[in-house]
Design a protein around this nucleic acid. Structure first.
Length: 297
DNA sequence: CCACGATCCTGCTAGC
DNA sequence: TGCTAGCAGGATCGTG
């Protein structure tokens, strides 16, 4: 599941590989749902013959910019998508649904077994900007005071909010859980119940876990690979994600206090946390539980 | 404004 | 061993 650090790692690799190259062929588009705003003919007509002027990231989107400045492609890898660089066009890879071939024969292939990934084509800067307008700020640009301000009037669980891309762009389930552990905040806490110190801890924790993820080349839990097919190393540095009880395997110990890591469904997502380090506290969430109607039978 | 369920997909695994 | 049912997971949409 590529999140900000995995997308960033891949984008950094692609910048050096793609910038200045000319697209000679666009192909492999065998799943129309992956291209919500363009047909395969439009993709070919818009991109073939053009030079790549740069590769960037916005939230979890990979942005390919093309000569002239108006044309761009945004790719969201969702759960299983990888952007793989092939120096030569030989060989095929199962589940390739989009490929750019460059002058000289090298290829960029979008490989996505689950077909959840999306490729958007923009023919103008304005249309791209309007598409990206719904995204929240970049978490790495966010200062503690700004985060605190954003949390103030949000009456939802902090875990939900961290996963909301219109709140912050780029955090997913794994880094949300890691950041909350780092900041010692229970994922069920209501966002507006966090005090100043907690909000500041969370801001620092978000920054730290994302930067560590990037330094370690991303987290490879199941499918993530960088542009050259490399696995990340950050899975070896996680504190809670994937460390709760699983069928046939006991929960692992919290590296801070030794308690068994828990795995509960919170905000429709599997959530991993330390029940001792991350107390539900006396916020709205904890009070709310007391007033839940009893269920019988 | 917020919660929740359904949807999209396929590989993996638990359970028979 | 082989089969199937159920699950995970990001984002979006519809309903309450």
């Amino acid at each position: 599941m590529p999140e900000l650090p995995e997308v960033e790692t891949t984008v950094r690799a692609l910048q050096g590989l793609l910038t200045g190259r000319q697209v000679v062929r666009v192909d492999g588009m065998d799943w129309p749902a992956m291209f919500p705003n363009a047909s395969s003919v439009e993709m070919k007509e818009s991109l073939e013959g053009r030079l790549v002027t740069g590769v960037a990231r916005r939230g979890k989107y990979t942005v390919l910019n093309f000569e002239g400045g108006e044309t761009s492609v945004l790719i969201h890898r969702k759960m299983s998508g990888n952007l793989l660089w092939h120096p030569s066009p030989e060989g095929t890879i199962a589940h390739t649904h989009f490929l750019l071939q460059f002058l000289g024969g090298a290829e960029l292939r979008f490989v996505d077994t689950r077909k959840f990934g999306r490729v958007h084509l923009f023919r103008s800067e304005a249309s791209r900007q309007s598409f990206l307008a719904s995204l929240g700020p970049e978490p790495l640009d966010l200062g503690p005071a700004h985060l605190r301000e954003l949390l103030q009037n949000r009456r939802t669980r902090i875990k939900s909010l961290l996963l909301d891309q219109s709140f912050l762009a780029g955090i997913g389930n794994l880094y949300a859980d890691e950041a909350l552990w780092e900041a010692k905040i229970h994922p069920r806490r209501m966002a507006n119940s966090l005090g100043r110190a907690e909000a500041h801890r969370l801001a620092r924790a978000i920054h730290a876990v994302l930067m560590r993820g990037i330094e370690n080349g991303g987290t490879t839990f199941a499918t993530y690979l960088s542009a050259g097919g490399e696995r990340g190393a950050n899975q070896n540095f996680l504190h809670v994600y994937g460390r709760g009880q699983l069928p046939g395997r006991a929960a692992q110990a919290c590296s801070r206090c030794g308690s068994a890591i828990r795995r509960d469904v919170i905000a429709q997502r599997s959530s991993h946390y330390c029940p001792k380090c991350q107390r539900p506290g006396s916020g709205v969430a904890a009070r709310g539980i007391k007033f839940l109607p009893q269920t019988f039978g």
